[in-house]
């Protein structure tokens, strides 16, 4: 049981962390509260499904291509919608919900409402401490953690990463230090959606994909962002792991816990908002960043 909790928590936590980081990045850099973030996660899963069933593309290639297509679509959404109205933060949020619904309906019309399966990237299972764990779960955890390391390297070691962090902290000063904030915002939109796509691709084989699969992760991402502190990239990643493990603990330790799974992050979000609205690591909502 201990091993199961450890691995399952790690898998969920790492995937949530990828989603939460992507969401935080585009919010921090462009002030876009992208409610369609996890819709891109759902979309990627279905792009993969479409590619392997209709086009007979091998799975790894389908996954990579789908992630790239999703990223490009994200940039298109940015250019067509967000970029024009991004000063009106409420309008941005409404538009992003509309985009998510659009994706959902399109997928519903194309693929139907039924739950469908995507084959695993790696077959078989592995015995560890008396429990058997699907190799796919190791793959999901490994790929997610590799992605997190990749994001960390990008942000801390590259010029693009340095620009992103500068814009995230103070757009005006980044601007007068020679950073093209508009361009950086667009790049971050691409990166953010690619991260959502990676999360979708590595998760898809572990769940049943369906057009509504974006709503629950969205709640988790929002909770992670509240828990970690709106605006704190690192905070939201840590919070995502906390939520991943909290959910797993509830599923394994509470009788009928799997029914409560979805409630865990909601409860966490409400509690944090009531007790410590600035989150564990972040700045208070009131203390707006420039």
């Amino acid at each position: 049981m201990f091993v199961s909790i450890l691995i399952n928590g790690l898998v969920s936590g790492a995937v949530y962390a990828i989603l939460a980081i992507g969401f935080s990045l585009i919010f921090g850099v462009a002030k876009i509260m992208n409610m369609a973030h996890t819709a891109f996660y759902m979309l990627t899963a279905f792009l993969i499904l479409g590619a392997i069933t209709f086009l007979d593309v091998p799975l790894p290639l389908a996954a990579i291509a789908s992630i790239i297509v999703a990223g490009l679509l994200g940039v298109v959404c940015y250019k067509l919608c967000f970029d024009r109205i991004k000063v009106h933060e409420t309008a941005v949020m409404i538009i992003s919900v509309a985009i998510a619904m659009l994706f959902e309906e399109t997928i519903l019309l194309t693929f139907g409402a039924q739950y469908q399966r995507i084959p695993p990237f790696v077959e078989g299972y592995f015995e560890l401490g008396g429990v058997s764990i699907l190799n796919q779960h190791f793959f999901t955890a490994g790929a997610s953690i590799a992605t997190l390391v990749g994001v960390w390297l990008l942000l801390s070691k590259t010029k693009l990463g340095m620009s992103i962090r500068a814009v995230d902290q103070d757009r005006e000063i980044a601007n007068v230090m020679g950073i093209n904030v508009t361009k950086t915002s667009m790049q971050v939109m691409g990166i953010s959606v690619i991260l959502a796509g990676v999360a979708g691709a590595v998760t898809a084989p572990t769940i049943m994909v369906n057009p509504l699969m974006w709503t629950n992760p969205l709640v988790i991402v929002l909770s992670a962002v509240v828990l970690g502190g709106l605006g704190s990239i690192k905070g939201s990643a840590i919070a995502a792991f906390i939520l991943g493990y909290a959910e797993t603990l509830v599923v394994f330790l509470v009788p009928d816990g799997s029914f409560l799974r979805g409630a865990v992050s909601l409860i966490a979000m409400v509690l944090v908002l009531l007790i410590r609205p600035e989150g564990l690591f972040g700045v208070a909502f009131e203390e707006e960043r420039l």
């Binding site: 962090r165 902290q169 103070d170 000063i173």
Partner: peptide, 10 residues
């Protein structure tokens, strides 16, 4: 800028 305005978290 006035008061330096460093990137505070860097």
């Amino acid at each position: 800028p006035e008061r330096g305005r460093p990137f505070r978290e860097m």
